[in-house]
Amino acid sequence: MESPHGAAVAADGLGLEGPRGWAFRDVTFSADPGSLIAVEGPSGSGRTCLLLALTGRMRPTEGEASTGGLALPRRAAAVRRVAALGPVPGVSELDPAFTVAEHLRERALLQRRYDGSLRALLRPPRDRAAAARARIDAALDAAALDPVTLPKAERTAVRDLERPQALRLSVALALMGRPRLLAVDDTDLKLSDAERAEVWELLRSVAAAGTTVLAVCSEAPGDAVTVRTDTPEETPEPAEPARAGSTATTYEEEPADAFAETGRA
């Protein structure tokens, strides 16, 4: 029986075809709630498209899939409510001009606006501020990001962050929504061996705490549920994940996601 928090993820013969051919095809796997799932393959092999399909952001062309027991693509809107995106280029990127504090405050406001109960919205301002701060601190702790270690603490602009720090900030922002599935693209891109090991340790800790993690990478760790998006015979050309007119259909987001995934992640 599925845990009340982490989301089980499964696919059977899943494929997505775009204007330049198949982004990925014949993807079959299953992973329990709280798993660390690594989508492994070279750049251009459809890894990001698979991540977006499994989080309800792209419509697959063939096969079946489910996330958290919700069938895709039929329940895509419900999947988007339980699956949060970490860094995904072109979809959920940090604003380089924003400071760490500005990103955190903005996300806290979004969570309160779209996820809060009526009772929470009617609480005194001081109590709402304390609750938002507690949520921020919990997310930072889960992402192992201590603002004190940054050049200007929470006033540090995103453009001044090292890539591992920016990745941790993106993870913290995603975790503020307490998702059942966290999806992270380009997990090991431009990281040293030591940095890569630290990032995987972070994602293991998130999964160990109960949140299923779906991470795109070029080389999966040995303890992950590994899903490959290419084949030895042929690496398909990628579909274009978010361009108008593509036959690889993207979904419209709910208001919270639309704001969060257009440069304010």
Rank of each mutant, 00 (worst) to 15 (best):
A130E: 14
D137K: 11
R168N: 01
A129S: 08
T149R: 12
A138H: 15
D160P: 09
P124C: 09
D146V: 05
D146H: 08
E162H: 10
D127F: 07
R126S: 11
T149S: 03
R128N: 05
R155C: 02
I136P: 09
A142V: 08
A166I: 03
E162F: 15
R128I: 09
D146A: 07
D141N: 14
A139R: 12
D127V: 14
A138I: 10
A143D: 01
A139H: 13
A130K: 13
A138G: 07
A120Y: 07
P164V: 04
A143M: 03
A143F: 06
A132T: 11
T156I: 03
L161T: 08
A143K: 13
L145T: 03
A144N: 02
T149F: 05
R168T: 01
L122C: 08
P147I: 12
R135H: 02
P125N: 08
Q165P: 02
A129F: 04
L121M: 14
I136E: 13
P125W: 12
L169D: 00
L122S: 01
D141L: 15
A166W: 14
P151N: 09
R133H: 06
L161A: 02
A138M: 02
A131N: 05
V148T: 10
R159K: 07
R135F: 00
P151T: 05
D137I: 10
L169P: 06
A166F: 10
R133K: 14
A138E: 11
D146M: 04
E154M: 07
E162A: 15
P124K: 13
A153E: 00
E162W: 13
L145F: 04
A131P: 06
P124M: 03
L121D: 03
A134R: 15
A142K: 12
E154I: 09
P164W: 05
E162Q: 06
L167F: 09
A143C: 07
K152Y: 06
R126A: 14
V158A: 03
L121G: 06
P147Y: 04
R163Y: 05
A130N: 09
A166Y: 13
A143Q: 02
D127Q: 15
E154D: 12
D160N: 13
R133A: 10
Q165M: 11
A129G: 11
A129T: 06
A139S: 06
V148H: 07
D146C: 06
D141M: 09
D160M: 10
A142I: 01
R155P: 00
R155S: 02
R159N: 00
L167V: 09
R155Y: 00
D141W: 12
A130S: 10
R159S: 06
V148F: 05
T149W: 07
R123D: 03
A139N: 10
A134P: 01
P164K: 07
R123C: 04
L169E: 01
